[in-house]
Amino acid sequence: MIKMYGIKNCDTIKKAQKFLITRGVEFEFIDFRQTPISKKTLQSFIDVVGWDKIINKRSTTYRNFSDEEKQNISLSLTLKNPTLIKRPVLVTADDIEVGFSEKLYQRFV
């Protein structure tokens, strides 16, 4: 089963969901705000794709951080501020993909 992590009101999440739904791809959506992810889950994302891909440097949350905070992004800081996580995070049995592009998602169809 595919799991999609994100925030329900995110435009990129909506695009990714629409893409999968219109192609009949089943997935489970997990909203970071309603069901906070665990430290173990976040660490698994980082282990596969790395911090650079996980952190959304365009987010308001990130931009409002001090330079020191930006240099010291940690698991606990990210768990307290889930909007730091780039969306969507798509988890399959074999891989983790961050962000949305139709080209990237074609392999799930």
Rank of each mutant, 00 (worst) to 15 (best):
K57A: 05
T61F: 08
L77V: 08
Y5F: 15
A16V: 11
E69C: 00
T60C: 00
T61G: 04
D67W: 01
Y5K: 02
K18E: 14
L75F: 14
T12W: 11
N9Y: 11
M1T: 05
C10T: 05
F108A: 04
N72A: 12
L104A: 12
K80D: 15
V48H: 06
I21F: 12
V25A: 07
S74E: 08
F108Y: 15
N72C: 03
K80P: 00
D67A: 13
A16W: 11
I2T: 05
L20R: 02
L79K: 06
D52L: 01
I2C: 01
S74R: 04
F32S: 02
P82T: 08
Y5C: 07
I2G: 04
R87K: 08
E28T: 14
I21R: 11
F65Y: 12
F100K: 02
K8W: 10
E68G: 01
I85P: 01
L79M: 09
E102G: 04
Q71K: 15
D31I: 10
R23K: 13
L90M: 12
L75S: 06
P82N: 06
F27G: 02
G50Y: 04
T35W: 10
L90N: 02
F29I: 11
L84E: 10
T61R: 09
T22G: 00
C10M: 06
D94F: 04
I2F: 09
Q43D: 14
C10P: 02
W51L: 06
I55T: 09
V91G: 05
I54G: 02
I54T: 05
K3N: 03
K86C: 06
S44D: 13
K57G: 00
L84C: 01
R23L: 07
L77S: 12
I54K: 02
F45S: 02
K103S: 13
S66L: 10
I2Y: 10
V109L: 13
F108W: 13
F19Q: 03
K80W: 00
V48C: 07
M4P: 03
K53W: 03
I55S: 03
L42N: 04
D94V: 08
G99M: 06
Q34T: 15
K39W: 00
I54H: 02
D11R: 04
N56L: 05
Q106F: 14
T22C: 09
T78Q: 07
V91K: 09
N81H: 14
I21V: 15
L77F: 14
V49T: 09
Q17G: 07
E28W: 00
Y105S: 01
E102Q: 12
R63V: 00
D31A: 07
N9D: 14
I85D: 07
R23Q: 10
Y5V: 12
S76I: 00
Q17V: 10
T92P: 04
S74D: 12
G6R: 03
F100P: 02
R33F: 14
S59V: 03
T22A: 08
K70H: 09
N81D: 12
Q43Y: 04
V89K: 03
R33N: 12
